[in-house]
Design a protein around this nucleic acid. Structure first.
Length: 663
RNA sequence: GGCCCCGUAGCUCAGGUGGAUAGAGCAGCAGUUUCCUAAACUGCGUGUCGGAAGUUCGAAUCUUCCCGGGGUCACCA
């Protein structure tokens, strides 16, 4: 609603500038004035035009305001325009009409042109348990998916599985050499683990750390052990051998644990494309043909990359003469094998439907109302259509910015400009541990690390906070609170409430930071349920619902009840700023949805929802609804609670946060 | 060394394309419950916006340089 008015006003001002000065402006900057008393919109456009028109800003502002006021058609929805300060133009909304329209419409964004969008997130190496860093990825990704869907886009969610990479190879080396197991032995081990309740992903967490140390534990053995790792990796890539069967067994079991972990947070996927299929279905061969044909790749005949197929890096300078480009990115090694970036280029051609080949698909994991599919060499004939997207978002941390840029550059080089433009590396900074947190977890922390602001999580070192451990701790903490506050509830209700609050706390925690700020993880902050946290937002909804329970009505009815009622006097009355603030904030939700998508920044929504909850708390304190005597005013107060509920629940749903009935 | 990110209150962070008096939360102190849930609310503070120049009517925001912290630049993935 706010967005609609804003666009309308911008258009009106543009029209005025056209007729008044015969000038065309690109964008009319519209912001909210620092105080509500100045109105709902303000523009500094007169300052910008001052030089061009050789007039004082104030004079220009007066002329624009005069022109706006002269025609009724220009002022639809607005009560007044005025000049303020040295030349600001402030606009006041017709509050009653605005509230009426917002109560009625619900301001649901219409899908202008529904695009087929593909979002890839989570993508954890299936060789160890998920940790806090992965949680940030999955929560950012899932929230962005909900935002896109909220805006009416058709979204496929993919979780890429690197099941044939070095990390899985490391765990296989651990099983086959540190534990001296063959395939039968690994199967037996997995049965034992299952029997005594040890999670395979937790077991691998420790094993992976052990192997990583083992490689370099004996200097004279290091070379041989590293060769063992490489041989294992090759066996995985080739497939069809006992080593690859062990890898398949373990990585699939770990993958299932990951899906279960994410499901605890309400995160689901449509497809799990695996590297093994990219290799075995020879996606690369087709990509290689295209890349060679278009000259994106060329065979290097000299220098350090002699014998490789290489590609120029984005933004790299032209190399003089026929000297080799030493800075080029190797895509095919001199031994004929393909690098990660090469495989990624092929995979991304598939994402955009440009490869000329598809995966096979099998159902893999059942959600309550749908299936998650996995790639397979030979799939089922009946499967949903995957790939062929118009736009893609890759939720991958900022450390992979370079390889991502290489893939985009390759698409560009192939002439797929449109696709390159709609390829977004949804980048975010890592989650690290504060030294205090590391000490709390009994990790050894060097003197040097102790002085740092944060320490990077490392799966290789087994250094980090496991996702499920964190979720368990959150639930234990919320459960304690719920038990104390609501002894009258059943065991099942208390557990469900505790889970809802725990998930709300975790998801909000991961969303409140903007993408490019490093999260220095600390249990104290993550386990907090007060202040700017998920539970604060949930609590606001709980309060609203409590009001409606006691009033024996519903938000829908409360909104319908203000139809045709003249709300204007109540919204503009002395002391009613708190009421109008709630309406205005609530009406901005769609604007925020827009901004979050165009900037790929979910944190804006988190902040907005928090502010709406704050505005409501303020309103709640100042205006007692149930005891209101004026029947018209009571309708307005109830409707105010209702718009809060509607918009807050909508925003929370996008963030994957549910609102319990009581808490 | 090249490139990317960060530096704002004691701590953790917001401050869309430059705009009116730089804001939240936490921590601290003092209060609020015969009243719709106190996971709430009220009050009390501090800022060389890392530093310096520049652009501009106007800079936390843009440009350049410098300082500090982190990341990244493999025939690893």
């Amino acid at each position: 609603m706010y967005l609609k008015q804003q666009r309308q006003l911008a258009e009106q001002i543009r029209a005025v500038l056209r007729s008044l000065y015969q000038i065309e402006v690109e964008t009319v900057v519209l912001e909210q004035p620092p105080e509500l008393a100045f109105g709902e919109f303000a523009t500094p456009i007169a300052f910008e035009l001052a030089r061009k028109l050789r007039k004082a800003p104030k004079k220009i502002a007066e002329e624009i305001v005069g022109a706006l006021g002269s025609e009724a058609s220009l002022t639809a929805g607005f009560a007044s325009f005025e000049v303020a300060g040295a030349g600001y133009i402030n606009a006041r909304l017709e509050r009653g009409a605005f509230a009426q329209a917002f109560a009625r419409s619900g301001d649901v964004p219409r899908p202008e042109q529904a695009q087929h969008v593909l979002v890839e997130h989570t993508s954890i190496n299936p060789n160890k348990a998920a940790h806090v860093g992965h949680l940030r990825n999955a929560i950012l990704g899932d929230t962005f998916v909900q935002l896109l869907r909220g805006a009416g886009q058709q979204v496929d969610v993919q979780n890429y599985i690197d099941n044939t990479g070095v990390q899985v190879a490391d765990v296989v080396v651990g099983l086959t050499h540190l534990e001296a197991l063959n395939l039968a032995g690994v199967e037996e081990l997995m049965n034992e683990l299952a029997a005594d309740g040890t999670r395979i992903d937790y077991y691998c967490w420790d094993l992976y750390a052990r192997v990583s140390q083992w490689y370099e534990a004996v200097p004279e053995e290091t070379a041989a052990r590293k060769r063992l790792r490489l041989d294992t990796l090759h066996a995985l890539e080739t497939g069809g051998n006992e080593t690859s069967q062990i890898a398949e067994l373990v990585s699939t079991a770990v993958l299932r644990r990951h899906l279960e972990t994410m499901l605890r947070l309400g995160i689901e996927y449509d497809l799990l494309p695996r590297e093994s299929e990219i290799l075995h279905l020879h996606f690369w061969d087709l990509a290689f043909e295209q890349l060679k044909a278009k000259g994106v790749l060329y065979f290097e005949t000299a220098g350090k990359n002699k014998g490789c197929w290489v590609m120029r890096r984005p933004g790299a300078a032209e190399v003089a003469g026929d000297a080799p480009d030493e800075d080029a990115k190797v895509i095919v090694r001199s031994n004929g094998t393909v690098t990660y970036v090469g495989k990624d280029i092929a995979y991304h051609l598939w994402k955009f439907g440009l490869l000329g080949k598809d995966f096979g698909y099998l159902p893999f994991f059942r959600y309550s109302d749908r299936e998650c599919w996995i790639s397979a060499e030979k799939g089922r004939p009946n499967h949903p259509q995957f790939g062929g997207a118009q736009a893609i978002y890759n939720v991958i941390d900022s450390r992979q910015a370079d390889p991502q840029a290489n893939v985009i550059e390759a698409l560009r080089g192939l002439g797929y400009t449109e696709q390159a433009e709609h390829y977004t590396h949804f980048s975010y900074e890592m989650v690290a541990l504060t030294p205090r947190c590391a000490l709390e977890l009994c990790y050894e922390v060097s003197e040097e690390d102790r002085a740092r602001p944060y320490i990077e999580v490392s799966g290789r070192k087994g250094f980090g906070v496991k996702a499920d451990d964190l979720i368990d701790r959150l639930i234990a903490a919320t459960r304690g609170e719920v038990d104390g506050r609501h002894p009258e509830l059943s065991e099942a209700e208390r557990e469900a409430t505790a889970k809802s609050i725990a998930v709300g706390a975790l998801r909000y925690f991961m969303l409140r930071f903007t993408r490019n700020s490093v999260i220095a993880f600390d249990f104290k902050d993550a386990l907090s349920f007060e202040g700017e946290t998920g539970p604060y937002l949930q609590y606001a909804v709980v309060r609203v619902r409590s009001i409606f329970r006691k009033a024996a009505t519903t938000p829908e009815d409360a909104l319908a009840a203000v139809a045709g009622v003249d709300l204007a006097p109540y919204l503009s009355a002395e002391g009613s700023e708190g009421i109008w603030e709630v309406w205005l904030r609530a009406a901005k939700t769609t604007l925020l949805l827009d901004q979050c998508i165009s900037t790929a920044e979910p944190a804006y929504l988190a902040k907005h929802a928090f502010q709406l909850a704050q505005d409501f708390s303020n309103f709640y304190r100042l205006h007692h609804i149930l005891s209101e005597e004026d029947p018209v005013r009571k309708k307005l107060l109830l409707a105010t609670a209702a718009v809060t509920e509607r918009e807050l629940v909508r925003a929370l749903a996008w963030m994957g946060i549910s609102a319990p009935e009581v808490m």
